[in-house]
């Protein structure tokens, strides 16, 4: 819970005030925190690509949105990232539970894990890899950077970091 609290606190101090998630067990503690936070909007949604659309609308309404999802969700969302968020230059924070990184018990997660960073690099999306608690201190500067460059950015939460929360 300590790690999850720190992530949400740093996202909020970085300006994030609108949250969506397609749940993951590594995101579960953060979802519990957000469900009880009256200062921000939070909802679960069925699919990540749809969430990119909702985040785009929330940005038009002057929010800094964050979509929480597994890295698999990037695969579901490529066209909406390029032809909506990037085309219109919309800052959105992707908070990604990076399944298939060391510690992961499910072998099948390794496939998407092995291509996730290449996809994000191809999309020119800045990444912040979080492997330990100190890395979380960079989150608020990084989300503010999304606003400045008017671009989606990706915060990657490695398996062991979240599994030890």
């Amino acid at each position: 819970m300590k790690i999850s609290k720190k992530i949400i606190t740093n996202l909020k101090s970085g300006g994030v005030d609108f949250f969506l998630s397609v749940p993951c067990k590594l995101l579960a503690n953060m979802i519990t925190i957000l469900e009880n936070d009256k200062d921000i909007y939070y909802s679960t949604i069925p699919r990540e690509e749809e969430g990119m659309g909702i985040c785009a609308g929330a940005y038009l309404g002057n929010k800094l949105p964050c979509i929480m999802m597994q890295n698999t969700g990037i695969g579901n969302s490529v066209n909406s990232i390029v032809s909506l968020l990037q085309l219109y230059q919309m800052p959105v924070v992707f908070l990604i539970s990076y399944r298939g990184t060391p510690g992961e018990p499910v072998g099948a997660q390794g496939g998407m894990a092995s291509v996730t960073e290449d996809i994000l690099k191809t999309l020119r999306i800045p990444m912040l890899n979080c492997n330990n608690e100190e890395d979380l201190d960079k989150i608020s500067t990084f989300t503010n950077h999304a606003k400045v460059i008017e671009s989606p950015v990706a915060v990657m939460l490695n398996f062991n970091l979240m599994n030890n929360d």
């Binding site: 990119m52 909702i54 785009a56 609308g57 949105p65």
Partner: peptide, 22 residues
């Protein structure tokens, strides 16, 4: 009028996100 130039399928979602914030 917000014209979509890409992301076929997301008109309902973009409008929903906006309606939740204004």
């Amino acid at each position: 009028y917000f014209y979509m130039l890409g992301s076929m399928g997301l008109a309902s979602s973009i409008g929903l996100g906006l309606s939740l914030t204004i």
